[in-house]
Design a protein around this nucleic acid. Structure first.
Lengths: 130, 130, 130, 130
DNA sequence: GTGGTCTAGACCACC
DNA sequence: GTGGTCTAGACCACA
């Protein structure tokens, strides 16, 4: 499971974005994409913490916030499961992506780049991330 | 000058991104876009602080870091100027935009959206930001 | 720890060199000399501030700049560590010393002192500083 | 005279050391070395300011402080002259050099370099500055 | 516990 | 006029 965990989550310690938040958003995206299906059990706090070499409290905080958010459900004695109710349609996935696109668009505008250039650059970046 | 300042910079106090950092990135983008040309004098720390209703030290910190970065030059007793050396070609502007695009691409991949959907969504966001 | 801190850093409040800069250069030299080894945790901002009787922000500024410089690494919630990457060989230490020597050489030239006199004087000063 | 001035003084605008202080110390060293002999007339404030592209008030401040220090004398209607009383023996020149050497020695000690290494490096630097 | 940010206000140095 | 530094003290985010 530990090995699986290491593949599932990836964090950047140097980033200004806090670790717990990186975890939260990854779980949300993976759930929306269906990689984490409703009913799936998540790796334990201890496993994730060990695999990522972070403080267990950090992982716990992420799980707690995800539970409050309704994305996860705590099953007594069995850890956390992906909530049933989450369907994750295309609409929702697009909504999750929007903020990042909006930020990019805002910055592109301030840089006074034309739409063609922006889109070409994005296509290239997308290809690299394949 | 105050009016000019208010037009030049805009901050979001509620944002998690610190004010000084918002200022830094705006100056960089404006310089790269040519709105701030090499040799231009920036509004004084006090003017910006007054116009944005923030503490002068906050603005000073931004200017200071921009100087270290090489984007600005301090002219003793005369304020800050946009550095001469910055050409700000298309290459540089694209480089400044890349991180935001890469983030969007990474998130899109985790959401398992196909390229066509992603690009259409981006085009729409770009149009809204026009 | 406080006692350790007091030994580690020493500042001169009367000096024209700002406190935060005195701290920066001391950390750099101590790291280059190996007194501060890679991975060592530095005393906390509050401890240093308390021991030197300066404002925490002053110490924080020094640590912050050292982090940007790559000399220190911030471990979230655990303070600052001496960066791993710094080897600090003789080469680097000599490079850190060079500016001071160049300044002395430049001034000596303007004073039109001959090399022998300069070197003898330097030897004497070195002995006094032993 | 302007050309002569440009050769006589040299400033570094990027340096943290204020311009007026750079000028003061250069005059002192040049006077101690005999390059500026007692009775010599210094280039006018206007000439120096023009040649170095600095504010005339900055040059004026340097000259004023040098006059207060006794290094220069103001001759009505004729500008500043190097003071008569200054002899500038070897002792004095060494005293002027000492601070720079002491600083270098202090830094060298903190870098834990051995005397041989330090002296060899200094010899090399001296040769380069010839 | 850690560092980061910001404020309000003072004082200084430089030009 | 300009920016730089420092203080005292508050509040926040992270681990």
């Amino acid at each position: 499971m530990t090995e699986h965990t290491a593949q599932l989550f990836a964090i950047t310690t140097g980033s200004p974005e806090p670790i717990y938040r990186q975890l939260i958003e990854q779980v949300k995206r993976l759930a929306a994409a269906g990689v984490l299906a409703p009913g799936d059990t998540l790796p334990s706090v201890r496993d994730v913490a060990g695999a990522l070499a972070v403080n267990p409290m950090t992982v716990s905080k992420a799980y707690n916030l995800l539970e409050m958010d309704g994305a996860l459900e705590r099953i007594r004695g069995q850890g956390m499961q992906v909530a049933q109710r989450k369907a994750g349609g295309r609409r929702e996935r697009e909504a999750l992506l929007r903020p990042a696109l909006e930020r990019a668009a805002r910055e592109a505008r301030q840089l006074e780049l034309d739409d063609h250039t922006i889109l070409e650059l994005f296509k290239q970046v997308l290809k690299e991330a394949k």
